[in-house]
Structures are given as structure tokens and as C-alpha cells.
Computed example of a mutant assay.
Amino acid sequence: MLGGEAAAVVAGMLPVVDAGMLGVDEVVTTRRGKAIVSVLALAAAIGAAVLARRGRDWIADRFRPSVADVVVPIGVLAVFAAAVTVILDAWELSNDVLNVLGTPDGRTVPKLMVTGIIVVGGYVLTSAIRRLLDDLIGNSDAVTEHQREVTFRLSQLVVWILAVITVLGVWQVNLEGLLIGAGFLGIVVGMAARQTLGALLAGFVLMLSRPFEIGDWIEIGPDGQEGIVKDITMMNTRIQTFDGEYVMVPNDVIGSQSLTNRSRKGRLRLEIEVGVDYDADVDRAVELADDAVDDIEESLDVPSPETVIKHFADSSVVLGVRFWIDNPSARRRWRARTAAISAVKNAFEEAGITIPFPQRTVGGREDGGRDAAIGSEAPVPEAAGGDE
């Protein structure tokens, strides 16, 4: 196999490894000194990992980002390897570890080195893919942030799968049995996690169909969640409601219900209902409502406001005042509704048009042994054979 051949080449290039060639155990003989050396080695390794981020930016600015992608992980891996070697040598455990890892062909150390090279190569390749995606489609309006992130995650998954297969080849693991076991495991996991897999597939569908994006104002279902999309993952969508709550909705739930996107077109039509008295001039009321709404700041000129006669109510003729706003959001919607209601009310008051409230007229009739007066009983004739 390719991995085994690489390990053989590295083995031919390496000299015989002497487990105690550092000589740390000869310099530090007390347990306290060994403990101090171990702590210092661990601190150096952790410090290298912490400083790697700053060093990455510095190398990327001084040279090239690709150089930083290669140098930083190799440097961190080398520091960790050196720290482990120092600790093992200080506690005289190098020979024991090599005996445990030893193989008849003596290629354990080369295999470990090839494995480390593959791991670093996978990390470098995924970083290069991330930078390539940012350069190619980072400023494209046709590809959303969610689609770019999903594309990177899929590419990252493919790279690490290939890296794992290569590492297994280096260690000469039987892939046929492993693949058969993975197939049976996949069937069991698929049956046990149908809902999770459904959410995952729904995440791919959302990525391709793009019904909404981060920052859109959506409503899920006729009586479902409503709010602003804050994050989209492969498994769920996070929404911030107008009450300030964060709601996590599985993607399969979104895919199985109706979805309303109020931000997609960049504008939203609002409607308020107002009733006018039956004695009022309805045409005049329609004209006043149109002019009142047209004057508010939030209303768009195109499409222009429109008032329609909707239906007859118990005490009024109901008008529907419709107008449009741009860049819709919950705050703009309520602010526009409030301004429109105030403007229509003031216009009707100035024109003397009454907005009636529900009224009920109560009357009576002379029937069933009752007087015309409401609620009074008619006198009942005295029965024959009264008191003597």
C-alpha cells in the first residue's frame, strides 16, 4: 500500500533511534527535579499552542498566508513531540514506550512520523481550502455565508476521511473488514437516529433552495415561531424572537411546514382596518385615508397607498387601509402601523367623520301578557271564588 511504502522510505532514511539519547534522566536524578522538568515541558507545549495564533498572523503578514498554514502546525507539533520526549526521558520511560510500540520490522517510529505528516497535511489542506473559498466566492452575492460554510465543511470532511484512510493504510489495517463493520453500524445508526438524519438532509435542502438567509425576518407555520434568523447550521436554525428569546428550530421542522419570509422582497404591505358611520360619505373617507397614510414617513410612494371597502359591520362600514414599507422589520412595522392609525384618526376628526363604536338599540312589544313598558308584567285577573 502507498502508506506502507512511505513508511518504508522514511525508515530507510532514519538512523537507529536511541531511547536515551537526550540524557535528561542523567542530568535530573531527583523526583522533584523530574516533576519540575515535566511541568516546564508541558508549559512550553501549551505556550506554543497559545502563541500559535499570534504567530500565524505575524507570519502571514510578513510572508504569505500559505507559509503560515505550513509553518505553524509543524512548529506546534514539533514542540509537543519534544515535550513528550523530554518527559519520557526524564522519567526513564523511553525504552518502555518503544517496547510497547515496537514491531518486528522496526518501522514503528517511521509510521508515527508519516502519520504526523498526514495529519499536518490534512490541516494545511483544509486551511488552504478555506482561504480558496473566501477568495473565490467571498464577495459573491450568488453564494450566501451559509452555503460557503457548508461547502467548506463538506470539503473538510472529505479531506479528513482521505487522511484517515491513508493513516490506516500506513498501519496496514484491514480496510475490508472495517468497511463491512462501518456499513452495519451505519444501518443501525440510521434506524436509531432517523430524526437527526432527517434534520441533516433538510439542512442540505435549505442550503440548495435558500428560502431564507441570516438576518431575514421569517415565520414558521401558521402559528409557529416568528423572528430574525441568527444562525443556520446543518442540523437546526437559530431564531431570535421579538421578545428577545433565542429559539432553536430543527431543519426538518422547517422543511415540513409553511414558511413566510417577510424580508425576501425588501418591502412589506401593511393593512389597518377602520370603521366609518353609515351616515358618512364613504368615498370621502376613502380619499382622506389615502392622503393621511401617504403623508407618513414610513409609507412608500410606489406602490401607492390604497383604501378598499371591505364589509358591513354591525355599527360601521369597515375600510381596509393598505400601504407598503421598505426594509421590513418588527420595529418598522409597528412604528408604521402606529403612525398610520394616528394619521387616519386625526384626518377623520378634522373632516367630521365619525368612527362609531358598537351600539345596541333595545325595544319592547305588547305581547305574551306584558305591557308595552319594557319589563312590566300585565295584571293577572283575580280567580273566581275569592275570599268571602
Rank of each mutant, 00 (worst) to 15 (best):
A292Q: 00
R264H: 10
E273T: 08
V293P: 03
D281S: 07
G266D: 03
A280Y: 07
D283Y: 11
Y278D: 04
E271S: 12
E271C: 06
S256V: 11
D295V: 04
D294Q: 06
E273M: 13
N261S: 11
D291W: 00
D283A: 08
G255A: 15
R264L: 11
E297D: 13
V286D: 01
T260M: 14
S256T: 15
V274H: 02
N251P: 06
V253T: 15
I272S: 02
D283Q: 12
A289K: 02
L259C: 11
D295W: 03
D277G: 13
K265M: 06
S258G: 15
L270T: 02
D290L: 00
D295T: 06
R262Q: 12
D252I: 09
Y278E: 08
G266N: 04
I272E: 07
E287K: 10
T260F: 14
D281K: 05
I296R: 05
D294Y: 02
D294H: 02
R269G: 05
E273S: 08
T260R: 14
V276N: 03
D252V: 07
S263A: 13
G266W: 06
E273W: 09
V276C: 04
V282A: 00
V274S: 03
A289I: 01
L288C: 04
N261P: 11
D294P: 00
R267V: 01
D277H: 14
T260G: 14
I272R: 09
